[in-house]
Amino acid sequence: MSNPNQAMVEKYRSNFLKEVEANVEEGHWVKMCMQCGVCSGSCPLGPHWEHPPQEIFMMIRAGKREEVLGSSSMWMCTSCYNCIARCPRGLPITHIMHGLATYAKRLGLQPKTQPTAKFSQLFWSNLTKTGRVNELKLGLSLYFMNGFANGIKTALKMQDVGLGMYKTGRLNPLEILGGHSIKDTGGLQKMLKKAFEIEEAKIAEYKG
């Protein structure tokens, strides 16, 4: 199937809840939400969510597929786990939000300029290259993720932090040349490739 998003639309028609249950990490929990709103009130970035978590859960049940998957909401999650700790029904809300965000991204539906969606991918690409995070390259790729001119502006704004970290021995300019790495990078990549294949195949099953 050339367009995974179209495949999903056809497969599930009006049943977005089933689609989420089948394809989203911990998605089978969504139906358990009782709409109390404790999650939304507990979220450190609560005011910045286009739709707070309990609204997202209800929208899934109401079949608002495009509105949910195209929302910037889930990308506001800081992974603080306050919602999980407080949810009276024990929903793993943090994981569901991560799962929805990842699923949206796999289907290419995430908001195109969402900074956390971009950063999350930069982080993953950075760490899987050598098996360990290269903090210098991660920082630089972040500064320049919105183009060269913006990158220079951000880099200048951040120079006090960079210099401070350098002076205290917590940043190494030589990391640009390669930096930390595990020995078995080939093995790591082979393992990840397999894990991706299995996950993709699982989603493909539902493509009908």
């Binding site: 991918q121 993953w124 690409s125 760490l127």
Partner: peptide
């Protein structure tokens, strides 16, 4: 020996469930 990054919390966008967990499993 030869431990790798766990992908922290923020790696989810690129990693998904199984690849992310495989890092810790290794």
């Amino acid at each position: 020996p030869d431990w790798n990054c766990c992908s922290a919390s923020i790696g989810y966008g690129g990693g998904g469930e199984l690849p992310r967990i495989s890092l810790s499993a290794r």
